[in-house]
Design a protein around this nucleic acid. Structure first.
Lengths: 346, 346
DNA sequence: CTGAAAGCGCTAACAT
DNA sequence: ATGTTAGCGCTTTCAG
C-alpha cells in the first residue's frame, strides 16, 4: 500500500519487481507468456504499490478511453434517468464508464456537448436529440466519426441507429380504446409539440380519430397546474365539451388530472382520461389512471447494447452492417386502469 | 473541416499555420503573448482542421482530467437523479464532466467504483456511502488522496466534507406535529434501517415520542404494496391500533398510502399520515399527503460546490481548511397538507 | 520468456 | 513573440 497522493507508475512497479516494463504491462493485461514466478513477483509489487493503470496514458497510446457519453435533456426526468440507469449498467458490463451531459433540449447545447465529449475522446455516444433535424448535430457527429446511437428520438439523415417506442401505434391504440368506450369528443393534450415523440403521438391520435369519423382537437397550452385549470375550464365551457382527454406526456397527465380533481369533474364518468407514459402513482390515485407504458429500461439497454455492438464489432461486421443502420422499435403496452372507463362501477 | 475519423493534432495545426507547437498551445489556452496576426492564422488552421485538444494528452502531462466522479446508489431514484442533475450543472460550470457510477448501496461496489474512477484519474469524487462505517471505502479514498465530498450521508473517520439534511430534527418536528394533532399512537414505518438517513430519522421520531411520554413503535417490514397491506392489517388488529403513521421514505409512504386506500381507512380521520420526502403527486392525491421536503437540488449543488472549492482552492486555502472539514446541513421543511389533519373538514 | 526503445499529443522550461 | 525539446505513463514492435 502506497502512502497517499501520488500514483504509482508502471516503471515503479517494474523496478520494484526487478523486471522490465514490458513484463509488467503483460501482467496487467492478462499475464500471458509470463513465467509464473515473475508473474507472482510482479503481482506482489503491484499490490504493494497500490498500482492502478493510468487510463490517460493508455488512450494516448491509441487505446479506447473506455468511456461513453450520454447526452440527454435532463437527468432529473424519470424517463431519462431510468434510461441512464440501464445504459450505465450495460456500460459497466462492458468495462466502460458513463459520462452524463444534459442538453435541456437545446440544440446548441447538444452540439457543444458532443464537442466537449470528443475532447475526452469518448468511444461512443448515446443521445436523445432535441430535434430530428439538427443539421449541426449530424455534421459534428460525422465529422468526428464517432459511433453513436439515438434513443427515444431518431436523428434523420445521419447513418445512426435508433431505439424508439412505437409512439404512433400506441397513440392510435389508446385513442381507439377511448372510442370503444363510446367517447366521441376526445381532446388531445400535448406537451412540447416540437419533439419527435409528441409529433408521432399526435399522428396516432389523428389517425384513430379520423378513422372513426370524429373531430380532432389538439391543445398544446398546458405547461403547469394553472394553465391546466384554465385549459380544462375553457374546454368544458365550449359548445362541444370533451368526454375524454388523451394526454401525451407524464406531466401533462398529472396536471390535467389534478385540474379535473379540483374542478370535481368525475373521471371517467364525466370525462375519461388516458395518458402517455406510466408513473409511480398512476395506479394509486383515485381513480387510477389508464396509461401507455413504455419499456423504459429496455430502451436504455437496447441503445447501449447497440452501441457496444458497433464498438466491439470487427471491421467485417461493421462493413456488413454498413448502410443498414439498426432501427429498433420497442413495444409499449396499454395499461388499463379506471380512468378510461374500463372498471367504471356506476 | 476535416473529413471524418482521425483527430487532428496540435502538431498538424502548427504545421498548417506555419508556427511552432508552443504557439498553438498558447493560442488554445487563451492566446496570451501571441502576435494578433499569428493568432488569427492559428485560429484559422484550428478551424480548418476541426482541431480539438486531446484531453488524455493534457492529463498525462499532469493537468487535471476535468472529470469528476459521482458514486450513488442509483440514478433511477428521483432523489439521487435530482442531486445528479444539480451536480452536473455545477461541474459543467466549472468546465468539468460528470462520470456517473451506481453502487446499489453495496459497499463492495462502492470501493470497486472508486478504484475504477481512479484509473480514469477523476479530479474529485462526490459520493453517497452506503454505510457511514465503510472502512474499506475510507482507506481507498485516503490511499488515492482524492478530493471527495459526501452527500446525503456522511462517512465517519475520513476527513471528508459532507452535505446532509437535518434528518433528526425534521423527523422530530414531523412527529411533534402529529402529537399536536392529538395523535397518541404513532407508528414509524422505516425503509432500510441500515442507512444513515433512516437511522437519524428514527432517532428524531424516538426523541419526539419519548418527550411526549408516548410509546415508540417501529416497523421495518414494508418492502412493497403487499407487505404494506399485511403490516397495516396487523397494526390495525393489534390491541392499540395506531392513529398516525410516520413513514421514513418515499416508497414506504406510497405503499402505506395505497394500502390504506384499499382498506378504506380514512385519512386523516382514522389514521393520519406524514411522510419523509416529497414527491410529485403528494399534493394531488386525495387526501394530499403532508411531507417533509428536502431541498434536493441544494444538496447536489452544495456538494459539487464544496468539491470544486477544494479543487480550485490554493494550497494556502487547503491548509487553512485542513482538519476543519465542512459539514453542511441543509434545512428541510414540513409541507402541511391534508393527511396530517391540518385541513380536516369533518 | 523478457527487455530496450520509440512514440502517442500535449505543455513548460529554456532558448532565441 | 516564438521555436526546440524533454517527458508525462503506457503499449508495442523488434531483438535477444
Amino acid at each position: 500500500m502506497n502512502k497517499q497522493g501520488k500514483h504509482a507508475t508502471l516503471g515503479e512497479v517494474a523496478k520494484l519487481a526487478g523486471v522490465g516494463t514490458t513484463t509488467v504491462s503483460r501482467v496487467i493485461n492478462g499475464g500471458e507468456r509470463v513465467d509464473p514466478k515473475t508473474l507472482a513477483r510482479v503481482r506482489k509489487a503491484i499490490e504493494r504499490l497500490g498500482y492502478m493503470p493510468n487510463q490517460a496514458a493508455r488512450s494516448l497510446r491509441g487505446g479506447p478511453t473506455r468511456t461513453i457519453g450520454l447526452l440527454i435533456p435532463s437527468v432529473a426526468d424519470p424517463f431519462f434517468s431510468s434510461c441512464a440507469e440501464a445504459a450505465q449498467a450495460i456500460a459497466r458490463a462492458n468495462g466502460s464508464l458513463l459520462i452524463v451531459t444534459t442538453t435541456q433540449n437545446d440544440p446548441r447545447r447538444e452540439i457543444e456537448g458532443v464537442n466537449i465529449l470528443m475532447r475526452h475522446r469518448v468511444d461512443g455516444l448515446i443521445l436523445a436529440p432535441a430535434s430530428t433535424q439538427n443539421q449541426g448535430l449530424r455534421e459534428v457527429l460525422t465529422r468526428w466519426g464517432v459511433p453513436a446511437v439515438t434513443m427515444d428520438r431518431p436523428l434523420e439523415g445521419g447513418q445512426i441507429s435508433a431505439v424508439t417506442a412505437d409512439n404512433f401505434s400506441a397513440s392510435k391504440v389508446a385513442t381507439e380504446h377511448l372510442i370503444e368506450h363510446g367517447r366521441r369528443h376526445i381532446v388531445c393534450l400535448t406537451g412540447e409539440p416540437t419533439l419527435y415523440t409528441i409529433k408521432e403521438r399526435i399522428r396516432g391520435y389523428r389517425a384513430a380519430v379520423k378513422a372513426a369519423g370524429l373531430e380532432c382537437k389538439i391543445e398544446d397550452s398546458i405547461r403547469d397546474y394553472e394553465s391546466a385549470e384554465r385549459t380544462i375550464d375553457q374546454l368544458l365551457d365550449s359548445k362541444t365539451p370533451p368526454d375524454a382527454l388523451f394526454t401525451l406526456k407524464n406531466s401533462t397527465t398529472m396536471f390535467a388530472f389534478e385540474a379535473m380533481q379540483r374542478r370535481n369533474i368525475k373521471i371517467p364518468d364525466g370525462v375519461a382520461l388516458v395518458g402517455f407514459d406510466d408513473f409511480e402513482l398512476a395506479a394509486t390515485v383515485k381513480p387510477s389512471i389508464t396509461v401507455i407504458r413504455q419499456p423504459v429500461t429496455e430502451i436504455g439497454t437496447a441503445a447501449a447494447e447497440l452501441l457496444f455492438e458497433q464498438l466491439t464489432g470487427t471491421a467485417r461486421d461493421a462493413e456488413r452492417r454498413n448502410g443498414r443502420v439498426a432501427q429498433v422499435q420497442v413495444k409499449t403496452s396499454l395499461i388499463q386502469r379506471e380512468s378510461c372507463g374500463c372498471y367504471s362501477t356506476t
